[in-house]
Design a protein around this nucleic acid. Structure first.
Length: 783
DNA sequence: GCAAGGTC
């Protein structure tokens, strides 16, 4: 018999061929199409690989005219399948004609079923010849079993996936057009709407709103330092929400010189190893070391195709039994992790950790070959190392820590001190690059003994707003809400950026992103809610289990969409106006003092700038600050009356400043003093394109004097020059120092090199137990 | 020029 096997990706074609042919398969792969042939058990096999979906749902051409066709009329429009990769489909068409059996061997999931079915349907294959091989890992056992127990293809499962396609396209296309047309954003500036992107955007909008509306609540912590080590003890009633209550305690303990140890226990804590990497956690951890999810996926794909790591798109956090941990470790001996690997191999037994998520699509991400940092460079190496170290951590021993709990009584008030000391670092030894250590020592104490009080402080703090999402935490939240899939989440975030809905490293929605979300919340029929995805999910389960049909589910959804589309159409003007005004406010800076026209943000080939709409008659223009996120404001500069901008820079609080860099309000705070090199120019605070600040001479390029500035904290002029080197002295975080890091007053040449961006840690934010996200802000010394 | 889902 002649048998045709269709796989989802090239690697699967290779693995299956090798397994079924006992290694005797021959690849005839062309440039575009992977084809492998072999004989086994008297049958002639041809294996062809797809590249995921090679067909795509879209509307027929007559719907291409956005202006000419009412979006309402598209609700029930019938989409067609368009061929994306003709070369593969043609090849399969040829082989199908001469095959007696066609075996779909795509991934064993909903999309896999559809990918297979849509392909055989598109080439008009005789469906009675079509069989399905179901395997959940590309191991010898699984694959052989799947091919010896072929089943019928599951039309219902494929239907479930197809229902999703149709519903996503109709809601997406109809609402995208309605929003774009009503807001006047057509052409390449169109505004998109979708089942996944719109709820994701709403997460950011909601968080932004929470932060903007946040009202800080003050609280007080009483903190003591004890004994020779001056270890920290905190009052058990922290935080105090009333200053009076805290003051009462402070005066009660005011005269105490010693405390009494009431309780003291030491215990060992076992610290478990982290779970193996699935795609989400890999993206989260990569993001922490400065590799955003989209870059991480690109690099992971690269590492996968060149054989360094396993398949990077997986939801699994449990290594399959068939995967030998020792085997992986042996391969890693051929790398610069050799010593660490050998140490791990010395364990009596190697039992890996496992996570909660268990699926059968692919194994967790693990290294499949050794590499070294002199051959592999940059972020690729950083990601590879992360994957290797994560793997090592999952097969290393547990860590142990010594935990000390201690209670000290001071004048009838109770303080608690917690000690944490790492004993056996275990797996952390291999993963410490990516961990924060937080050791705190409490010495050995005797219960009933006295202990000296070193200090008693009342620290005033206030509750803090929740953190903004970054790309890592957003991906985690999407994962939790089941928005998108492991393969698409990073692309969805990319979409929010390219549509200008969000900006910044910490994701902030733009005015238009916010306005769009608000309008859709009101009129979008639930498109901004994650529940639309959960409803779809349960509908798909119903279809695949035969409790509902594709036709019914699609019809129900489109009936809803029809109502929504009609309503929006009837209120089109009003619906679009909110978005239009948000778009205007995003661009509008203020009125031009020369000609009275609007000044707006404009784009040139050198980037964005502020220009007068009266151009070319009026040429008034201002540069925009570099390397920063800019928001427009409605306030005017008290100095010159021009408009002000809100400047948001990484690691710094937002600053409101005048659009004119020459305005006194800007020069005063940026001019640090006379240049000690040329004695002509002024040393000013400036920003590089990347947003890093430094100080440089205004006579540049004639004078090239520059100084690095500490990346965080406030820098202000002091008006004085350094007595030792003559460079300007500045106020840094309230204290004075010479701007010159090489100056003797700052320890001369012992200066550390500037901190690498990726390794900058967030400044300490210690949380208070009862309220979320609280942190210490100001200190008041009392004792 | 529309979505989201595969994969490269």
């Amino acid at each position: 018999m002649r048998k045709l096997i269709i796989t989802e990706k090239a690697n699967a074609a290779r693995r299956i061929s090798t397994i079924l042919s006992d290694g005797k398969s021959k690849s005839e792969s062309g440039k575009d199409v992977t084809v492998i042939k072999f004989e086994a058990g008297g049958d002639e096999y041809t294996v062809v690989s797809l590249r995921g979906h090679i067909l795509e749902l879209d509307y027929p051409e007559e719907y291409n005219d956005w202006g000419g066709i009412s979006p309402v009329d598209m609700v029930y429009a019938e989409p067609i399948k368009k061929v994306k990769v003709k070369s593969i489909l043609n090849k399969i068409g040829e082989f199908v004609k001469t095959s007696d059996e066609i075996i779909i061997a795509t991934d064993f999931d909903r999309e896999g079923e559809l990918i297979g079915m849509e392909t055989v349907t598109a080439v008009n294959a005789d469906l009675s010849k079509v069989k399905r091989a179901k395997f959940s890992a590309l191991t010898k056992g699984e694959v052989e079993k799947a091919f010896s127990e072929l089943t019928e293809p599951d039309k219902k499962l494929a239907d479930a996936a197809e229902a999703r396609q149709i519903i996503d396209l109709s809601w997406g296309a109809v609402l995208t057009r309605l929003v774009s047309l009503s807001s006047g954003q057509v052409g390449k500036n169109f505004m998109s709407v979708g089942r996944v992107q719109s709820p994701t955007l709403k997460l950011l909008v909601d968080r932004h709103e929470e932060i903007e509306n946040f009202v800080p609540v003050p609280f007080w912590n009483i903190i003591g330092k004890f004994g020779m080590l001056a270890f920290k003890g905190v009052h058990v009633k922290n935080p105090f929400w009333s200053k009076d209550d805290a003051d009462k305690v402070m005066s009660a303990i005011a005269d105490a010189k010693t405390g009494k140890v009431k309780a003291y226990t030491v215990s060992m804590k076992e610290e478990y190893r982290p779970a193996p990497f699935d795609t989400t956690m890999m993206q989260v951890e990569a993001n922490k070391i400065g590799i955003p999810p989209s870059v991480a996926m690109k690099l992971a794909e690269d590492l996968y195709t060149s054989g360094y790591i396993s398949y990077p798109r997986t939801e699994n956090t449990e290594y399959p039994k068939s995967l030998s941990m020792k085997g992986v470790l042996e391969k890693l001996k051929d790398s610069e992790f050799k010593e660490e690997v050998e140490e791990i191999l010395k364990q009596d037994k190697i039992v890996p950790s496992r996570g909660k998520k268990r699926t059968t699509d692919h194994p967790p991400i693990y290294p499949t070959a050794g590499a070294s940092s002199d051959k592999m460079k940059g972020d690729k190496w950083k990601l590879y190392e992360l994957i290797v170290r994560r793997f090592l951590a999952t097969v290393g021993p547990n860590a142990t820590a010594e935990i000390t709990d201690c209670e000290i009584e001071v004048a009838g008030e109770t303080f608690k001190a917690d000690g944490y000391v790492q004993k056996d670092p275990g797996w952390k030894k291999y993963y410490k690059k990516y961990l924060k250590s937080a050791e705190s020592r409490v010495p050995k104490l005797n219960v009933g003994g006295e202990i000296e009080i070193r200090s008693k402080n009342l620290e005033e703090s206030e509750t803090k707003p929740p953190y903004r999402y970054n790309q890592g935490s957003l991906i985690q939240e999407m994962d939790r809400l089941q928005l998108g899939t492991k393969s698409t989440r990073h692309e969805i975030i990319g979409k929010l950026f390219s549509r200008n809905y969000v900006e910044g490293n910490n994701l902030i929605p733009t005015a238009s992103g916010t306005a769009l979300t608000k309008s859709l919340e009101k009129h979008g029929g639930g498109i901004t809610e994650p529940e639309m995805t959960s409803k779809l999910e349960s509908d798909m389960i119903d279809i695949s289990e035969g409790n509902n049909t594709l036709t019914e589910v699609v019809k129900e959804s489109q009936n809803m969409l029809f109502v929504v589309a009609k309503k929006i159409t009837s209120e089109k003007e009003q619906f679009g106006e909110d978005i239009r005004s948000a778009l205007r406010s995003e661009q509008f800076i203020g009125l031009c003092p020369t000609c009275g026209s609007s000044m707006t943000i404009k784009k040139s080939k050198n980037g964005k700038f502020i220009g007068c709409d009266g151009y070319p008659e009026c040429a008034r223009a201002y540069p925009l600050p570099r390397g920063a996120m800019i928001q427009t404001t409605e306030t005017a500069c008290p100095e010159c009356g021009l408009a002000q901008l809100k400047i948001i820079r990484k690691g710094m609080p937002p600053v409101i400043q005048c659009i004119d860099p020459k305005c006194k309000c800007n020069t005063e705070k940026n001019n640090l003093g006379l240049c000690p090199t040329c004695h002509k120019g002024t040393i000013r605070i400036m920003f590089s394109k990347g947003g890093r600040r430094f100080a440089g001479c205004s006579e540049w390029p004639k004078c090239t004097q520059t100084y690095p500035l500490r990346p965080r904290g406030t820098v202000a002029p002091s008006g004085d020059q350094c007595a030792v080197c003559g460079a300007p002295e500045v106020q840094f975080n309230g204290h004075r120092e010479c701007i010159n890091p090489d100056c003797d007053t700052r320890g001369g040449k012992t200066r550390k090199t500037p901190v690498n961006k990726a390794t900058v840690k967030k400044t300490g934010t210690k949380t208070v137990p009862t309220k979320k996200g609280t942190s210490t802000k100001t200190k008041k010394e009392i004792a």
